[in-house]
Design a protein around this nucleic acid. Sequence first.
DNA 1: CATGAATGAGGTTTCATTCAT
DNA 2: TATGAATGAAACCTCATTCAT
Lengths: 233, 233, 233, 233
Amino acid sequence: MISGKRQIRTFSEDEKLVRERRRHIVDCAIKVFLDGGYERATMADIARACGMSKGLLYHYVSSKEDILYLIARDQMEGTGAGFGALAERCGTMVPTEALLEYIRYYYTVVHETQDYQVFLNQVAAKLPREDRLVLFDANNFALDVLDGILRRGVVSGEFEIEDTTLAAHNIMLIGRSWADRRWFLHRRYTFEQYLGIQTNAILKAVRPRRGAGAKERNEAYGSLPEDSDLRGT
Amino acid sequence: MISGKRQIRTFSEDEKLVRERRRHIVDCAIKVFLDGGYERATMADIARACGMSKGLLYHYVSSKEDILYLIARDQMEGTGAGFGALAERCGTMVPTEALLEYIRYYYTVVHETQDYQVFLNQVAAKLPREDRLVLFDANNFALDVLDGILRRGVVSGEFEIEDTTLAAHNIMLIGRSWADRRWFLHRRYTFEQYLGIQTNAILKAVRPRRGAGAKERNEAYGSLPEDSDLRGT
Amino acid sequence: MISGKRQIRTFSEDEKLVRERRRHIVDCAIKVFLDGGYERATMADIARACGMSKGLLYHYVSSKEDILYLIARDQMEGTGAGFGALAERCGTMVPTEALLEYIRYYYTVVHETQDYQVFLNQVAAKLPREDRLVLFDANNFALDVLDGILRRGVVSGEFEIEDTTLAAHNIMLIGRSWADRRWFLHRRYTFEQYLGIQTNAILKAVRPRRGAGAKERNEAYGSLPEDSDLRGT
Amino acid sequence: MISGKRQIRTFSEDEKLVRERRRHIVDCAIKVFLDGGYERATMADIARACGMSKGLLYHYVSSKEDILYLIARDQMEGTGAGFGALAERCGTMVPTEALLEYIRYYYTVVHETQDYQVFLNQVAAKLPREDRLVLFDANNFALDVLDGILRRGVVSGEFEIEDTTLAAHNIMLIGRSWADRRWFLHRRYTFEQYLGIQTNAILKAVRPRRGAGAKERNEAYGSLPEDSDLRGT
DNA sequence: CATGAATGAGGTTTCATTCAT
DNA sequence: TATGAATGAAACCTCATTCAT
């Protein structure tokens, strides 16, 4: 579903070494990019951060742009599988459970890969069209999974949603904002608090306003009583 | 509350001309920045876009960074007044009305200044600290206004919200996403559709789950019957 | 003997005005040049210092280099006449008197035109060859006058000098150093002190070591007793 | 006593290479600066003179100003040690001998480093304050050494000088003029002639006018009979 | 006579990329 | 495999000079 098509030039033939080194490069480069931005970072900076010479860096990567691509691909590959598994897992759950599972998973991924999120947000526009589409597809896949869950919930009567796609979009948006707006949010909430409050808000927004869905409410967000304030954990 | 302090060097003393030309520069530069990003844009590009020579550009602006600042300041000045007036207007309304007014206003501003929004989002990190704070303050002010409205609604019983600050954050986030994620949203919704659906979703999310608030629902979003599908307008 | 040959373009036909304005330009420009140097000074700086617009400046001067030339020529013309008169005056004096007259005159000119001296010293190298020769000639003329005096003194037995040209060179050098090394000298001596001490030193250096010249010594430097310490005046 | 403090950025870590290259740059740059002046010289000119690309030049030097500093420092370091040794050497000599030693040493240094002298004279004013002080200190040190010698001579009765500091200043001035006024002097005298005549002139100027010092006269300037004409060597 | 907006060549500096060792 | 010296295109910015008003 997500795949790195582009071939990147290398002077090495030891595939395992190449993979290892590239991972190292990606990890270091992202740090360099995060302060100062992609354009301002020089290959010398990156090489230094990697503990390599510029020459060696060019053995594993053929241009600065390649590193951007590697970062994007890495991120995709890393989480792509996760979303595939998530989709499967959710397929067997009742919609509310699935939604809770999805939220917890997605928000946690965002939390754990903040740097990538922030970075990709900043530079997505600069990726060559082709690479940008890879990111785009990954996002769409994740959105479709969530959309599916919501749709099932609407059909089953557990959810009452005017536009499931937009709802899914909102839910993901709020998750990503934990990374995008971290300078605002992190000083006010812990991740667990954020996750808890937002989960409750989302449930309230998607559930029917009265009657029907009442029964399932008790499973909401890890079986916590619906009004429990998760803050202060 | 929001103020452009910094002085920008100019070689001209004709204030009116300077103002005019700077506005022109800002308008053109933003377009240049939007494709390719701030760093990639050269002063030559900008000059060309403005229909000036590089030299003349430097009569009105002393560096590329100045243009960034001008864009930010312009945006702030333009909308700063708006939010002040909005705050006042909302002060005399019942919370639900005020919320609707706020949403319509904010989302419309985002819609009409998309380019600025997208651009500022990309480069906020690159602004010198001082200038960044100006943006930050503006955002916080707008957030506080909304937070106040929500709080009043909670007190009056019109709203049922666990964390008003986070709710305000979410509402603004969703509004900005009309600009930030336009490549996704604009091909699926018109602005009016987007505004309608999201308004309904927000109302559902903030209203008490049953009983009390029910009466007001009929005024929701410009008196449309609550279940009307705004799509397809 | 010294003449400005070069024609400088002007748009004005009122010769008197042109002369006046050029004098003004020279006076102001020299100040600008003195802090920051010729190359660093911009025509805008100069125009501002003159209280004119750049455009008007170009009515009286056709290039930045022209100003350099004007300064040099002005200086030459101003002092050229002076040296002519000096030469005549000295022709009728006994050598020692003539020497004293020369020293006092030259050192005073240097003192009163310090800015010119310092400035010309710095930029002489940058003047176009032709203009540089004008300065060169002026210097040589002044040197010849002094050389003549010394020679006469040697013939008359008042002076005992191995090489009169070199001696003349030394005397002028010491005079110019009041301007060239002013940061060192001005904080230690007043001009009068400097003039007095150096005059005495020069007299001692040029007079015969014993016998003959002894008589005249009493007229030395304004009839001061030879051992008087001029410092502390 | 004289020290190069400032660190200059370099991209190379091979210290030996950096030192070598910088020396090369200094040697070439000085030539470029000497015709046309510091400001007119472009980095491209300098790079060409060095036989390097502009880029490589910037590996060893971080700005044009750095080159100025390197030249100044080089000069100081080279001669600084020399003056220290000279001071020591002179300490054990009788004043007249010391004076002769000093003159010969200083004038020779000026002769051998003409380019530096002329250049530094032109640009001293442009050096950043801090760097200028280094030059200033070096000069003052050299002046103090000479002043000390003259003072000792006055005490011992070998010299008769009204103001030793000013005398020292004059002696150095005359030495430097061999470089500063070379276009005038070099076509008239060889260095040895110049040294000889000026030495004699200085001796005559500092010695008592009669009696006392007479004995030592025979050692004057390398034991040459006092009236010998050194010209024509 | 007077202005200052406009130009564009040219200066300094940076940095992605190559390649000899 | 590994290095870092070397390149040169291209960026930002300045300023002498012109010319319409």
